[in-house]
Computed example of a mutant assay.
Amino acid sequence: MSASLRSESARTTTAAERRRDAIDLSGWGRRFRFVQPRSLAFWVYLVLTAIGLVHIWSYFRQDVVFYAEPFAVAAVLCLLCGVAWATWFHHIDRWERQPAGLVTAAIVWGAIPATFAFALPVNTAMLGIYPKLFGQDWASNWAAGLTAPFTEEAAKLCGLVLLLGLAPRLIRTANDGLILGAFIGLGFAVFEDFLYAANGTMTSFSSNPDSAAVTVSLTRIATSAVSHPLFSALVCSGAIYLIGTAAQPRRVLRGILFVLAGMFLHFTWDDASGLGGDNGLGIIAVMAASIIAALVILTIAFRLAAPREREFVRDLLAPEVDDGTVSADEVDALVDRRARRAWLRSAPSHRARRARRHLRRALFDLCHEVARADGVPTSRLDHARAEVSRLRDRAAD
Results as ranks from 00 to 15, higher is better:
369 E>K: 07
363 L>M: 04
370 V>Q: 06
368 H>Y: 11
363 L>D: 04
357 R>Y: 09
358 H>N: 13
347 A>H: 05
370 V>A: 07
367 C>D: 11
350 H>L: 12
372 R>Q: 13
341 R>F: 14
339 A>R: 13
343 W>V: 04
363 L>V: 06
346 S>A: 14
353 R>E: 05
350 H>Y: 12
378 T>S: 13
367 C>V: 11
370 V>N: 05
365 D>F: 04
360 R>W: 05
340 R>H: 13
343 W>A: 00
373 A>H: 08
341 R>M: 15
376 V>T: 15
377 P>I: 08
372 R>G: 13
343 W>L: 04
360 R>L: 13
354 R>Q: 13
372 R>P: 10
354 R>C: 06
373 A>N: 09
370 V>L: 07
350 H>M: 12
355 A>N: 02
369 E>F: 08
362 A>Q: 03
360 R>F: 05
340 R>G: 08
359 L>T: 00
365 D>Q: 10
379 S>T: 15
377 P>M: 08
355 A>C: 03
378 T>Y: 10
381 L>A: 06
368 H>V: 03
345 R>Q: 13
357 R>I: 10
376 V>K: 14
362 A>R: 03
375 G>A: 06
374 D>G: 08
365 D>L: 07
355 A>K: 01
368 H>P: 05
356 R>E: 02
355 A>R: 01
372 R>W: 11
367 C>K: 12
371 A>G: 06
351 R>N: 06
355 A>D: 00
350 H>T: 13
344 L>N: 05
368 H>L: 12
362 A>T: 02
364 F>Y: 15
369 E>A: 11
359 L>R: 03
